Amino acid sequence: MSGEGGRSVRLAGAARWAGRILGLLSLGVIGMFVAAEPPWPWRLSMLEGALLACFPVGMAAGLVLAWWREGLGGLVAVLGVLGFYLVHRVGAGEWPRGPWFLIFASPSAFSLASWALRRRGEGGVRRSPRSAPGPTGVGWPG
């Protein structure tokens, strides 16, 4: 059993650390942008505030959360970037240009991959005690 399941767990560990390291790099670069020109709340329009809430705030929250809960953190980061694209499309009438928003959010893909590989290595969906086999190899009674 250590064959396929063990390989999934090793790949999950590699994906986890790739996501963490790249996430720190992404957050560091975004932090430098924010430190260089902070977004003063009283200067932001409603559209800019909504965009800022999605990216970088929502995306950054997801990358930080992924250190403890990979699946949830990756999902939050992806939803933050998706929200940014949708708000920009609705508010500005066009899609954001360039790959940079996706590049900064790419560590979330590693977090989601790690989460999926760990679930696969553990045998997929966790079962309740009622479906666990009993001493005779059949399910629990009742």
Score class of each variant (00 low, 15 high):
96 P>M: 11
85 Y>H: 12
137 G>I: 06
51 L>K: 12
49 G>F: 11
41 P>K: 08
112 L>D: 00
40 W>S: 09
69 R>P: 08
38 P>Y: 04
59 M>Q: 10
129 P>C: 01
100 W>G: 05
54 C>E: 04
104 F>K: 01
129 P>R: 13
95 W>Q: 07
15 A>Q: 04
62 G>Y: 03
34 V>R: 00
138 V>D: 14
109 A>V: 09
67 W>I: 00
132 A>C: 09
44 L>E: 12
79 L>M: 12
94 E>T: 09
76 V>R: 08
87 V>C: 05
44 L>F: 08
69 R>N: 10
134 G>T: 06
100 W>N: 08
126 R>S: 08
50 A>S: 09
83 G>H: 00
103 I>W: 11
58 G>C: 03
19 G>S: 14
131 S>V: 10
99 P>A: 13
133 P>A: 15
65 L>F: 04
86 L>A: 13
93 G>F: 05
92 A>E: 11
44 L>T: 08
135 P>M: 06
2 S>C: 01
29 V>Q: 15
124 G>T: 08
66 A>T: 05
127 R>N: 00
47 L>F: 11
21 I>C: 06
104 F>H: 06
31 G>Q: 03
1 M>A: 14
46 M>P: 07
24 L>K: 03
48 E>C: 06
15 A>L: 10
120 R>I: 13
15 A>K: 01
92 A>R: 13
22 L>S: 15
126 R>F: 07
47 L>Y: 07
29 V>F: 14
96 P>I: 01
